[in-house]
């Protein structure tokens, strides 16, 4: 019983997104495609932060790994986009594993700073190899190279469906992960590391695995972003892009599978709406964040889940 409710809800959301493909006006159609891609990134962040308690400030490094892993292959080696997408995912996972090996020796604030430093080094590396990356200006992936098999990623309709497919895979894997025994160990690690250690789990291994999965997600999102929207640039690997998924997750609800998507969606429309009504739109964004933590500190879905009591967790794992 427990599982079916959550599964029904998540499948319902996916069905709704599929319906929007036919119903949404074209402006929102393109936006939702982009939001789904970025939501994969936020989901990855959530696996590390929301479930395992690893507050990283350096995820832009992993997003950037996917972005450049895919982008440089296509741009310089004329690689097939499918291959590039896979390479981007692996680059994100591999880099997360490597960073994890070192950074997970620390915890708390030190972990934040170490990840931040690694990401900053990554960002500067992109600039340093400007002759390949064109640094901050970045590179445009030619349209002809953006073909996933016979699927033309520069076409709005195809892009939406590919984004939805990747998003659906990521979402369902996320759901399966958090309901698996390993998912429970991740949460146990977040709640009480000492106790889980006594239960026989190695915190380092668990966290490293979670971080690597998080890296795979981030890499997928970065690679998909580059191939779908045709742009690969250092700005997308800068520190703002480490903060972004954190905001999405905290807004939507940390430790909920749907939270990252909801957060990305609301954040986008908040900025979009604010900038249409006022020049001072950063003020609106800032005030919204402050009000959010004051009145819904667990994020939207987190708050709903807490209010709903025992039944909440059945719907929103």
């Amino acid at each position: 019983m427990n599982g079916t409710r959550a599964l029904a809800l998540h499948l319902g959301v996916l069905a709704l997104l599929l319906a929007l493909h036919f119903l949404a006006p074209s402006y929102h159609h393109t936006n939702i495609a982009r939001i789904m891609v970025l939501a994969i990134y936020a989901m990855g962040y959530n696996i590390a932060f929301g479930y395992t308690g690893l507050l990283s400030l350096g995820h832009a490094l992993l997003f950037g790994a996917g972005l450049y892993g895919a982008g440089l292959l296509v741009y310089h080696a004329d690689a097939h986009a499918t291959l590039a997408l896979i390479a981007g995912v692996l680059a994100g996972g591999a880099l997360a594993f490597a960073v994890g090996l070192l950074a997970l020796r620390t915890a708390g604030v030190a972990f934040m700073i170490v990840t931040l430093m690694f990401a900053q080094a990554g960002y500067l590396t992109i600039l340093y190899f400007g002759s390949y990356t064109r640094g901050d200006e970045g590179i445009v992936i030619p349209r002809a190279a953006r073909m996933l098999g016979s699927l033309d990623l520069s076409d709005d309709g195809t892009r939406y469906l590919v984004a939805l497919t990747l998003f659906a895979i990521a979402l369902l894997c996320n759901l399966a992960l958090v309901r698996s025994p390993f998912g429970r160990v991740m949460v146990a690690m977040r709640e009480n590391e000492e106790r889980s250690r006594m239960l026989g789990y190695n915190p380092f291994t668990v966290k490293l695995a979670a971080l690597t999965v998080s890296g795979l997600y981030s890499g997928l999102s970065g690679a998909a972003y580059g191939l779908m929207f045709g742009y690969v640039g250092a700005g997308l690997a800068s520190v703002q892009y480490s903060i972004l998924p954190m905001l999405y997750v905290l807004l939507g609800g940390a430790g909920t599978v749907l939270g990252p998507f909801l957060g990305a969606l609301l954040m986008f429309y908040l900025i979009d709406y604010a900038s249409s009504v006022t020049d001072a739109h950063q003020f609106v964004t800032g005030a919204a964040l402050v009000l959010l933590v004051l009145f819904a500190p667990k994020g939207i879905l987190g708050t709903i889940r807490a209010r709903a009591g025992a039944r909440g967790a059945e719907w929103l794992p």
Binding site: L55, I243, M246, L247, L250, A254, A280, H281, Q282, F283, T285, G286, A287, A288, L289, V290, L292, V293, L294, P297
Partner: peptide, 18 residues
Amino acid sequence: EPEATIVATIGLLYILEQ
């Protein structure tokens, strides 16, 4: 709360910059 203060101070940062 650590996480809440981070979000709140990011919000504050936006407000002050604006």
